[in-house]
């Protein structure tokens, strides 16, 4: 009857509407300078992480952890053999920097995913169940939120000795969900009141169905947005821990590198050693942050609203 001018055959766009919404989102994203810079930086870091497998493969002396240049026994400035120089015992700084990128991605993304999964499920449970469960979960969230993560991790590592990198990731995740869960709970509360949820109830939908088919798809975009910010905070936390000497001694992270610089007294003697990890930490957190800001704009419902005229 109406809009039939688009004819009966369906284009790929018609059939898979997510393509259209993705393209729409992309076109908004593309107009955002911050987002573009963030994305380019992230791609560079991702390339670095991938390239981290190359140096050890060329020669065992480029292994970031164990590889030592047999001819060098002290900190040396950049050369042809070691593009960014070596550390105090002759390990290649570039190799370490590349490996650090891999660790940063690993720590950042896995901690963020874990905390988001926790935050979303707890937030949705609290918001949907309401009453007693809501109160309980939110008080728990409040308690964890006021605990200083860094201090708690320091205490834990003081008690249990050196922490494995995965333990650190887990701890970060366990301490970083409350913020997310609060937001998701609020979103769930408002969604719960919406008529389409009531319509599903009247149709006979189970709680399970309402939560997973109706509420979840509507909170996920927000959760993804928060993930980018959580990545930032996880990377910084890990770096701070490592720098303070509580990192995993078996991995080469940028924080670890800074700690070695500091511990061996090269803080102001070897800028070629100090600066690369420092700059990398700043840039990677900045780029995730910028990406998050751009996503914010893409997901902002006010911008996605249809044009209204009358």
């Amino acid at each position: 009857m109406t809009e039939s001018d688009s004819s009966n055959r369906m284009t790929a766009k018609e059939k898979y509407p997510w393509i259209t919404s993705f393209l729409e989102g992309w076109s908004i994203f593309r107009q955002n300078l911050l987002g573009k810079i963030g994305l380019v930086l992230l791609i560079i870091f991702a390339l670095m992480a991938i390239c981290s497998y190359i140096p050890p493969w060329i020669s065992p002396m480029y292994n970031p952890m164990t590889g030592v240049d047999p001819e060098i026994t002290s900190c040396t400035p950049p050369s042809l053999r070691h593009w960014l120089g070596t550390d105090f015992m002759g390990r290649d700084i570039l190799s370490q920097l590349l490996a650090g990128a891999r660790i940063a991605f690993m720590v950042g993304i896995s901690a963020a995913v874990m905390s988001i999964v926790l935050g979303v499920s707890i937030g949705m449970t609290a918001g949907y169940m309401g009453k007693f469960v809501d109160t309980l979960l939110m008080r728990l969230a409040d308690m964890i939120m006021v605990m200083p993560t860094l201090l708690v991790v320091l205490l834990l590592s003081a008690v249990f000795g050196q922490l494995n990198i995965w333990t650190i990731v887990l701890i970060i995740a366990l301490f970083r969900w409350p913020g997310v869960s609060r937001i998701i709970r609020g979103q769930t509360l408002s969604l719960k009141q919406r008529p389409f949820i009531e319509a599903a109830k009247v149709a006979g939908a189970s709680h399970f169905r309402i939560i997973f088919m109706h509420i979840m798809p509507n909170v996920l975009p927000l959760a993804f947005l928060f993930m980018t910010f959580r990545v930032t905070s996880a990377i910084i936390t890990e770096a701070a821990l490592a720098f303070l000497g509580f990192g995993d001694p078996g991995t080469v992270s940028w924080g670890m590198m800074l700690q070695w610089v500091w511990k061996t007294g090269h803080m102001f003697q070897a800028p070629y050693w100090l600066l690369p990890p420092g700059i990398c930490i700043s840039l990677i957190t900045l780029s995730f942050y910028m990406l998050g800001r751009a996503m914010d704009e893409v997901l902002d419902p006010r911008l996605r609203k249809e044009d209204q005229t009358d």
Partner: peptide, 19 residues
């Protein structure tokens, strides 16, 4: 639930935008 159904007031709110 199979026997009784409801049509809501606001069609802008009663359909899940993600489905």
């Amino acid at each position: 639930r199979r026997k009784v159904q409801m049509i809501f007031q606001d069609p802008y709110q009663s359909l899940n935008p993600q489905r």
